[in-house]
Design a protein around this nucleic acid. Sequence first.
DNA 1: CGTGCGCTTGATAATGGTCAAGACGCGTGG
DNA 2: CCACGCGTCTTGACCATTATCAAGCGCACG
Lengths: 250, 250
Amino acid sequence: MTNIAESRSESYQTCTHDPQVSCGNCRLNSICLPLALESDDIAQLDDIIQRCKPLQKNQHLYREGDDFESVFAVRSGTLKAYKTTDDDREQVTGFYFPGEILGMDGISNNSHASSAKALETAAICEIPFTSLEKLSALIPNLQRHFFQLMSHEITEDQQLITLLSKNSADERVAALLLSISGRNARRKLSATQFRLPMSRVDIGNYLGLTVETVSRVFSRLQKMDILQVDNKEIEILDSQGLRNIANLSS
Amino acid sequence: MTNIAESRSESYQTCTHDPQVSCGNCRLNSICLPLALESDDIAQLDDIIQRCKPLQKNQHLYREGDDFESVFAVRSGTLKAYKTTDDDREQVTGFYFPGEILGMDGISNNSHASSAKALETAAICEIPFTSLEKLSALIPNLQRHFFQLMSHEITEDQQLITLLSKNSADERVAALLLSISGRNARRKLSATQFRLPMSRVDIGNYLGLTVETVSRVFSRLQKMDILQVDNKEIEILDSQGLRNIANLSS
DNA sequence: CGTGCGCTTGATAATGGTCAAGACGCGTGG
DNA sequence: CCACGCGTCTTGACCATTATCAAGCGCACG
């Protein structure tokens, strides 16, 4: 798809710190940093975080195999993380919304285990990992927070494992919609009406289904008056019904 | 299956430190602690680690929802970790062999996100997490090591996600056998001949398949002269063939 | 020596994949 | 401004893989 030169030119460059924005006044800090940090602790964190130029749609934040140097927080926009399988298919491993952190799968090997690309224009905070490690050793709450963040990623992955292993197509799609709905609510956006940032292909890829199946599920849920679907615009008409389907319809 | 009283009586109790064994002389430390630690760092780690009385087959090390206090290293035996889904089915999220660490999914909520039980008699090292945190802040290599361990768990889970999402029954079983084979090799055991510590049900549960399908795959692989199967005794006759099936047969 | 659990095997059914065609929407260029 | 073309989405018909249901075997344990 892209050769090395292209991949270089479209790839992500670190940029200078914008002093306007800081973790202390960031609207997302209740998601990203739900911490009891002293204000000078936050200042120290601000010092190491780089707030970067926006990523255009389809641009990569990092690619599988890149040297691992930082983890990233999403400030705006949405990203998907994915791995390429041996036979060149794509496995989407997660979607990342504002306030969420990605890139932690790169720590274990010092190289990113997955790729991350923007599904729409996105703004990103870069957190250099060696600085974060040093700071974590000094601020116990911060160390705890990062252990928790990583642990949370593990439990999320286990949720997905269960979903893929045990649940029908309807249940998987319903669960994803409820997850997105919940994450919107956390950011004070509508839990019932939103625009999906990802394509049907991405959804299928994430949920272990084909595009056709995803599309059919959307149609079915619409016919059941649980959803109103207009391409990527989704309205949840019957959230209890959706929950029922996600949990124990089978 | 068990009421609370039973669960208490069969559940795991911490025990006193056996001074005979220490991380420094543990045969497994190349797996568990592949670290450049100074010998007095190891001594400090030894101080916080409790080496505990063995767990009998089917005993729980911890249960979903238990308060999170420690992570655990397997010294001998095998454990499975699993979650119970809303509709009371079981999702096995991992198998843990000697030298491997489990329990890290409990950090994010201060409560274990899954249960862990022994598949056969097992010996366990308990590592109290608050002590580990304190020590990590003092020993940069140890902090790094734990970040890496958790990150490794994430990448493992992502492997499983991909397996469940993209691969056929044959591919899944082949991949599991190769994984077990590799982990045996790492402990200097035979990579081609071993006894599966888990039942067919557990395998199916882990791989998102029914028992019947797992059994049929074993039969098929045997018919293809790739495996020799005698109940839980497995011999890999054609490991290249097995690799082919795991990767790109489909 | 029986009973039960774990494993295997077979027959049948259902879920989701594959293939194919058409609709819709969006951006580009005439 | 419209037309074209491509990419994304939807829908249908058919097929394959795996689940389900059922039965039987064998070994371990009481």
